[in-house]
Amino acid sequence: MSKDVVVDIQGLTKSFGDRKIFRDVTLQVHQSEVVAIIGPSGVGKSTLIRCVNYLHPFDQGTIRLLGHELRGGERPSAAVLQDIRTHVGMVFQTFNLFHHLSVLDNIVLGPVEVKKVPRKQAVERAHELLEMMGLTDWAKAYPRRLSGGQQQRVAICRALAMDPKVMLFDEPTSMLDPELVGDVLEAIQRLAQQGMTMILVTHEMMFAKEVADTVVIMADNAIAEMGPAKQVLENPQTERARNFLARVLRNTPPADIPQAVVGGDPD
């Protein structure tokens, strides 16, 4: 494996009970690379990235990351699991902020509990992150007071507070009202520019084209096509990729998207 490969997925196969979700997925993610995964609903995109931090076990294949190797059918030790999850940040479709904790405590929890960072230091860092996301005023609020877009940006702060080596995003904007999508996408784009390695499941085609280095199209229980973003999206080689893109692009009014990428004001 070449030196700057951060996540190396080889021959991954996964089923839930009798149901095969995908088979033989091979994918490498390099340092500072942004990989966007797209594909029809239910094809297993979420499942795939959840295998990376082992929220789901898988049946066959290996995932190498952070000097560890996860193997299909073998439960990793608690120490390995914790090390991986500590250094892999995840942002969920439904935000999943801890409802019983303030915005600040949501961000501070991981560093203090897992990395044993002194609370004072963790709080300082949390404030920096909130400022970066334009959420300075919300530190003391409880998550449910915030709009979806704000909640998702807090969730990004929560993941970043762990200083992750890799970030996983699972459709971070699909639960948001259209006018709130821009802020979140902008935050992700900024992370990409800062060199964060990311795997991103998304339905925002234009955003994928703009921000991702590599696009992976999943269809029919496997990877249908993968390659440089522009090439795959504009000039897909396989039949299945073409079919999928034709279906999606027909349903997406193109005018909306560039505007979303440019983003509105961060509040």
């Binding site: 999850r85 969920f92 929890l109 762990m162």
Partner: peptide, 11 residues
């Protein structure tokens, strides 16, 4: 999702 988010942080 709450459990997952916490697990994903490494707790």
């Amino acid at each position: 999702g709450q459990r997952e988010a916490a697990a994903a942080l490494g707790l």
